[in-house]
Design a protein around this nucleic acid. Structure first.
Lengths: 124, 124
DNA sequence: TGATAAAATACGCATAACGCAAACTTTACA
DNA sequence: TGTAAAGTTTGCGTTATGCGTATTTTATCA
């Protein structure tokens, strides 16, 4: 609670009034949640989690993942895994035959693929 | 709430009295939660989730995964991702610069790394 | 810089509902 | 069938939630 409510609301650049209206409660009521002066009902915390696009467990500090765990994480796993983040390498270690891939090896591979694609593009 | 509390408690073969004692509340109080007559405080629902080894989101019906997602998923993400499963390729699609990697490209890379390692081993 | 409005915080009060004990009903088991 | 445990319901005192309103702080104009 407390800090995370503030963080999430500010990250969306919402005012207390706006979020209170969306939740259908008084501004002072929601303010009480953020200050720790009051605790929301289960119904309210449900709505808050929905509105802030997070999990109740995150709001309660039971997990450090702000994302909605089950479905989203699952989606993430099923979605393509991007190897190149700008010019840096992916943070997850990759292995081939159980042996960890060095960042050099991966960079070499990325460079190779890029060069290969460049050639294919020029051919057309 | 409601049904899931009953399910989880019965799956552990606990009585109302036992679980109430563990939570430090009255039997009738906890019974109220299961019947839907009362709602637990945030503090209580936290303890309940801990005791029943599940997430608050599951108790509230926000997710259908009874397991505690965050850590497990996190572990999975932080563990090395094996690219070679026997002789087949990883099932998760990989991308470079947003463009999906063909299985041929990946196989080429794997072959390249294997060859490179072979050379290094022979050198010693 | 000062004026104005919006945003954020604090306060007082009525009332909903939480938590408990205790009574009551149902189930388990010998 | 008798006894104890498990489960359900009820009444009540007290808490603290939620609201309106007032006050303070911050932001944005000229």
């Amino acid at each position: 609670m407390l800090k995370r409510l503030v963080e999430l609301r500010k990250s969306k650049k919402w005012s207390l009034q706006y979020i209170a209206d969306r939740l259908g409660i008084a501004k002072s009521t929601y303010a009480g949640y953020e200050s720790g002066y009051r605790e929301p009902s289960l119904e309210s915390i449900n709505k808050i989690a929905d509105l802030l696009e997070t999990s109740v467990d995150y709001l309660l500090g039971r997990t450090d993942h702000p994302t909605i765990q089950p479905q989203e994480e699952k989606m993430k796993m099923e979605q393509p895994l991007e190897l190149t983040d700008k010019n840096s390498v992916i943070s997850i270690p990759l292995t081939i035959d159980g042996k960890c891939l060095s960042s050099d090896e991966l960079l070499q591979f990325i460079a190779f693929v890029r060069a290969k694609r460049e050639l294919e593009n020029n051919r057309n």
